[in-house]
């Protein structure tokens, strides 16, 4: 299977969109090439602003640019783009509902050898709590390109969660992408796996393996964590009666929590959650870390078996 990093999808698409829309500006915090903003920076030097290692300033500079009519893309590592800047995102970007797109690359464990200080594992939790902010976590390179295009045409603040590492391309050019609409990638009747980001491909692998054990798994790509596609989630809970969630993020506050909030209030069914279990990561190779911390097809399979034991019908 072909593999490419989601950040590359961002870099290519923002360049293409930059050619079409002169209102797009890009800001970087001294991580221009690694966030793949360098293609845009090279072609449009006057619409690119390197703010240096000043993420808080960068978020508010982007706010100012948007207040005078620009579509501002700020690009930094996910950990710094959302963690160091939370107050700026909440009070300036989101309270004002500004047209600022926060691009957080290098999210999750898969930033790998850089270790725990650089592994954003709480970013979904802290961003989805903020009113007005959309939170999008594409599953692959192709979906990232569609997401970047979609958020340019969707006024308001967005956090786009991307990765550093090459990951399998599991969607196709014609796979639909609509903000807030989860995609059912594989149909099934026994359990639904809701996954986001790189864990979507792990979920598909798990479903493939369990097919040989005569288990029929539905796999849903929840690329938009906020606004959550409540209709699809409730429908799947009704139809399959058991849920597994999978994310490269803390279980606390992430996709699993968001789905549990929705189902708890609408249609409670047993849920098992695959994600970081309230711990920090460490240095290691990306896929090695995923396995070590229980974020892989193997853990999803275990979760499916556990949830089936709790399933009521």
């Amino acid at each position: 299977m072909e593999a490419k990093a989601t950040r590359v999808g961002y870099g290519e698409m923002i360049l293409e969109l930059g050619r079409q829309n002169k209102n797009i500006v890009v800001l970087s915090a001294d991580v221009t090439a690694s966030t793949n903003s360098h293609l845009f920076a090279k072609e449009f030097p006057n619409r690119f602003f390197n703010i240096g290692i000043s993420e808080q300033d960068m978020i508010c500079e982007a706010a100012g640019l948007s207040l005078v009519g620009k579509i501002s893309f700020v690009s930094a590592y996910a950990i710094f783009a959302t963690g160091r800047t939370w107050d700026q995102i909440r009070n300036t970007i989101c309270y004002c509902d500004l047209n600022v797109k926060i691009i957080g690359t290098h999210s999750g464990l898969m930033v790998g050898p850089d270790g725990a200080t650089h592994q954003a594992l709480e970013d979904i939790a802290i961003t989805r709590a903020i009113p007005n902010l959309k939170v999008i976590s594409p599953c692959d390179y192709l979906e990232t390109k569609k997401a970047v295009k979609a958020i340019v045409h969707d006024f308001g603040p967005t956090y786009l969660r991307l990765g550093r590492e090459k990951t399998p391309i599991i969607t196709e050019e014609n796979t639909p992408f609509k903000i807030g609409k989860a995609n059912i990638l594989r149909d099934g009747i026994d359990v639904t796996i809701f996954a986001t980001g790189v864990m979507v491909s792990e979920a598909l692998k798990a479903a493939e393996i369990l097919e040989h054990e005569n288990l029929s798994l539905r796999v849903v790509n929840v690329h938009t964590i906020k606004p959550l596609d409540k209709n699809t989630i409730i429908k799947c809970a009704k139809e399959t009666g058991a849920i597994v969630t999978a994310e490269e993020h803390q279980i606390v506050g992430g996709l699993g929590s968001a789905i549990a909030e929705t189902l708890g209030m609408n249609y409670p069914v047993p849920i098992e959650m695959v994600g970081m279990k309230d711990s920090f990561g460490e240095s290691g190779e990306p896929f090695e870390l995923l396995k070590y911390y229980g974020l892989s097809d193997i853990e999803i399979i275990k979760a499916v078996k556990n949830v089936l034991l709790r399933k009521k019908f």
Partner: peptide, 8 residues
């Protein structure tokens, strides 16, 4: 920072 962004 906001003012600086506007000025930019």
């Amino acid at each position: 920072s906001i003012g600086s962004g506007m000025a930019l």
